[in-house]
Design a protein around this nucleic acid. Structure first.
Length: 273
DNA sequence: CAGCAGGGGGCGT
DNA sequence: CGCCCCCTGCTGA
């Protein structure tokens, strides 16, 4: 009751869900091979009707979508192409809006930033989270949103061994950032909205838990925020960045949390460059 | 090689 | 639906 960590854990990966229904949904889309929706024209099949419709559009000879703008003759075979065209051409919205939080380089599209993060900064996403998420900041830029890792076991271990935070961060591989939901906040405090690290003012209720921040490679933040359901929750951000040198030791001296987290931040390919 | 962009597909909301 | 994935061709440094 007091602990609102997601209680329903997928038996096949590290994803946890708040409800049985959402877990069932996850199981279906993530782990089921069932593809009831089949294309008549080819051997394509998928898991829902919307995806099938998107696919069928690709079979039409003529582009199925055209731009609404005045006398614009732009056409495309996908709605998303039309929308991006409209934004770019008719709304003059062509400035890069995705910004790398590590080196401040900007990108026009999220997936190109993803490529950058993976190639340049060796980011990886944890198991059960098949992609990065980007979040719009107050300055209008989209930046990587720290993934929330929601395992009860991990949470409890963290609560039991809060002293090993710094070592934990150091043991993690470079550029792996994990957010851990520990519990929800019952009451309601003044401001809402999450406050990301650094950047200009506007930072509200963020407190650093690192006992001593003389180790910039390992920082743990506690952020009081409101989640998608509108519930209050505390998210612990474990930030581990070691730009220079990845820890080569195959087995770190730490136990418990580290082992748990290492399944998330796996070895980088080590054959970069 | 890095970044951009179009197309098509996966899947969380 | 919207966001993000991959694949791929193009372009400029």
């Amino acid at each position: 009751m007091r602990n609102h960590v997601n209680h329903y854990k997928c038996p096949l990966c590290d994803m946890t869900c708040p409800l049985p229904s959402s877990l069932r949904n996850h199981m279906r889309f993530r782990h089921s091979e069932d593809r009831p929706f089949k294309c008549d024209c080819c051997d394509y099949s998928c898991k829902n009707l919307i995806d099938l419709r998107k696919h069928l559009d690709t079979h039409s000879k003529e582009p199925a979508y055209k731009c609404d703008f005045q006398n614009c003759s732009f056409t495309a075979r996908s709605l998303s192409s039309i929308k991006s065209h409209y934004r770019k051409v008719h709304e003059g919205d062509s400035e890069p809006r995705y910004k790398c939080h590590v080196c401040d380089k900007c990108f026009t599209r999220g997936n190109n930033l993803t490529v950058h993060l993976r190639k340049k900064h060796q980011f990886k996403w944890p198991s059960g989270h098949p992609r990065f998420r980007y979040k719009e900041h107050e300055d209008g830029y989209m930046r990587l949103q720290l993934v929330r890792y929601e395992s009860m076991e991990l949470t409890q271990q963290l609560l039991r061994q809060p002293q090993e935070e710094s070592d934990l961060g150091a043991a993690l591989n470079e550029s792996s950032l994990q957010g851990i939901i520990l519990e929800s906040v019952p009451g309601e405090s003044g401001s809402q909205e999450e406050a990301e690290e650094e950047e200009e003012g506007g930072v509200s209720e963020e407190m650093s838990l690192s006992a001593s921040q003389d180790t910039p490679s390992s920082v743990i933040h506690m952020v009081n925020q409101t989640n998608a359901q509108g519930a209050r929750e505390i998210v612990y951000y474990v930030l581990a960045e070691t730009p220079g040198e990845p820890p080569p030791d195959p087995e770190p001296p730490l136990g418990g949390i580290v082992e748990k987290l290492q399944g998330i931040a796996e070895e980088p390919e080590a054959q970069m460059l």
